[in-house]
Simulated assay, not measured.
Amino acid sequence: MSPIFTPVLGWVAAAGTAFGLAVASPHENWVLGKVPSIVAERLDRTTLQLPQELPSARTLALVVFQGHQKEEARSWIEGLQLHRDSSISWLKLPVLNDPGDETERRGILQRLLDRHQDKDDRARMVPLFTNRDAFVRATGLSSADHASVLVLDRQGNVLARAEGRFDPYKAQALRETLLARND
Score class of each variant (00 low, 15 high):
D114V: 08
P51R: 08
A61W: 05
P26Y: 03
H27T: 02
R161I: 01
A134I: 12
T46W: 02
G100L: 10
I108E: 07
R154Y: 10
A24K: 02
K92P: 00
W11P: 00
N97Q: 14
Q117A: 12
S148E: 05
A162Q: 03
D133M: 08
W11Y: 14
L152W: 03
P51A: 05
S56D: 15
V35W: 09
D101G: 06
L82I: 04
V95I: 15
R175Y: 11
Q52Y: 02
I108H: 05
E78S: 07
L32Y: 08
L96N: 06
S37E: 13
R74D: 08
L80K: 01
A180Y: 01
E176Q: 15
P26R: 12
L91M: 09
Q155K: 14
K170C: 06
A18D: 05
G79R: 04
R106S: 14
G140W: 04
F135S: 07
K170R: 14
V126M: 02
I77K: 03
A171V: 06
L60G: 03
A138W: 09
Q52A: 15
G67Q: 10
S87R: 13
R84A: 11
R115L: 13
W30L: 14
L112P: 00
A18C: 14
N97P: 07
D120N: 09
H83I: 00
R58C: 04
S142D: 15
E176L: 10
D121T: 12
F135M: 11
F5K: 12
A24C: 06
V126C: 04
F135G: 06
E102P: 07
H83W: 01
R74S: 09
S87Y: 00
A123P: 05
V126W: 02
P168I: 07
W76A: 05
D133W: 01
R105P: 04
A160T: 01
R45K: 15
A134W: 10
W11H: 11
W76R: 03
K119N: 07
L174E: 03
R132H: 00
A61K: 01
A24I: 06
A171C: 04
E104W: 05
S37M: 03
G67N: 12
A14Y: 09
R137Y: 11
R84W: 03
D153I: 05
R74A: 13
P3V: 10
F19E: 00
A134Y: 11
A22T: 11
Q66I: 00
N97H: 11
P55H: 06
A57N: 13
E72N: 06
V39D: 14
Q81W: 00
V63C: 07
S2K: 14
V64H: 01
Q110V: 00
L141R: 02
T139N: 12
P36V: 01
L128F: 01
L159E: 07
S143E: 05
D120I: 09
L48R: 13
A134G: 06
V126I: 13
A134V: 13
A15Y: 06
A147V: 08
R58Q: 12
V35S: 07
I77S: 05
L178Y: 04
